[in-house]
């Protein structure tokens, strides 16, 4: 499996606080990598660094072996790195279809291409019925799905998902995991997914990267992570066993 995205000795310091310390993350082409860790472990900071919203204090980010550490967020999006935010952040005054089209024209696509790709993305997520609804008029669960449709609309090579199932109930959470799997199957992109729901992430990921207080605690298969005593301790009794 060829390496798609990686970080080298990545550190981020905010004043005296060390949010990330020497993190080496690797994402293979076509791989789903789960990113877990207790609150404050640095997961979102890492995603911000990968997507260009946070400059690392030390270290490099590479895409296809090319250093992209100094690229800003729009440039990374154009290079095929797409992300979602924990709060969905749809463009509320725009229709669902337009929300998706922004992702394509934002990356330099024509309006007609945008229309086609938006339609395809909405079909993939079974949202075609809501295409012309204003985003703010959608129920929360559907808004999360639209956020995902928008993120994959420009056909990214790397998809970074920040808690796609946050605020969803168990059924919706399971459906979201299915959706992520379907996207992955369709696009064949590499996926990094942060999720609080450990059970969901162990079921979804090919490999899991565990952060704790900004350092890498473990990297391994879901089975290895599930039974790892350090991981269990880090979660302090939080249920890791599914």
């Amino acid at each position: 499996m060829s390496l798609l995205l990686r970080t080298r000795q990545l550190s981020v310091r905010f004043g005296g606080l060390c949010a990330l310390d020497g993190v080496e993350l690797e994402l293979g082409a076509g791989e789903i990598l789960g990113l877990i860790g207790p609150n404050g472990a640095g997961k979102t900071t890492l995603l911000n660094v990968l997507s260009g919203f946070q400059r690392p204090t030390v270290g490099e980010v590479e895409l296809d072996g090319r250093t992209i550490t100094r690229w800003d967020a729009p440039r990374r999006a154009r290079a095929g790195i797409s992300r979602t935010f924990q709060d969905v952040r749809l463009f509320e005054e725009m229709s669902v279809q337009e929300n998706c089209e922004v992702a394509v024209v934002g990356c330099g696509g024509r309006r007609s291409t945008a229309r086609t790709q938006a339609t395809q993305a909405l079909e993939l997520l079974d949202l075609q019925g809501s295409a012309h609804v204003l985003a703010r008029d959608l129920p929360y669960g559907l808004q999360r799905r639209v956020g995902l449709a928008r993120a994959l609309c420009a056909r990214p090579r790397v998809l970074l998902l920040d808690e796609p199932a946050a605020g969803l109930n168990d059924d919706e959470s399971a459906a979201m995991a299915e959706t992520v799997r379907a996207i992955h199957a369709e696009l064949g992109c590499g996926v990094v997914v942060i999720e609080h729901d450990v059970r969901m992430i162990l079921g979804l990921s090919h490999r899991v990267h565990v952060l704790d207080h900004g350092v890498t605690l473990r990297v391994g298969s879901p089975d290895e992570i599930r039974t790892d005593p350090d991981v269990v301790t880090a979660y302090l009794g939080e249920e890791v066993h599914a």
């Binding site: 999006a77 005054e93 922004v102 992702a103 024209v105 024509r110």
Partner: peptide, 26 residues
């Protein structure tokens, strides 16, 4: 409504950060 740049402007007007995440050049 109809031009790529206009659509990007509306998106940026609503949420500049999100627009940048989608490739919109500030």
């Amino acid at each position: 409504r109809a031009t790529p740049l206009g659509v990007q402007m509306r998106a940026a007007a609503e949420d500049f950060t999100m627009a940048r995440a989608l490739g919109v050049r500030a």
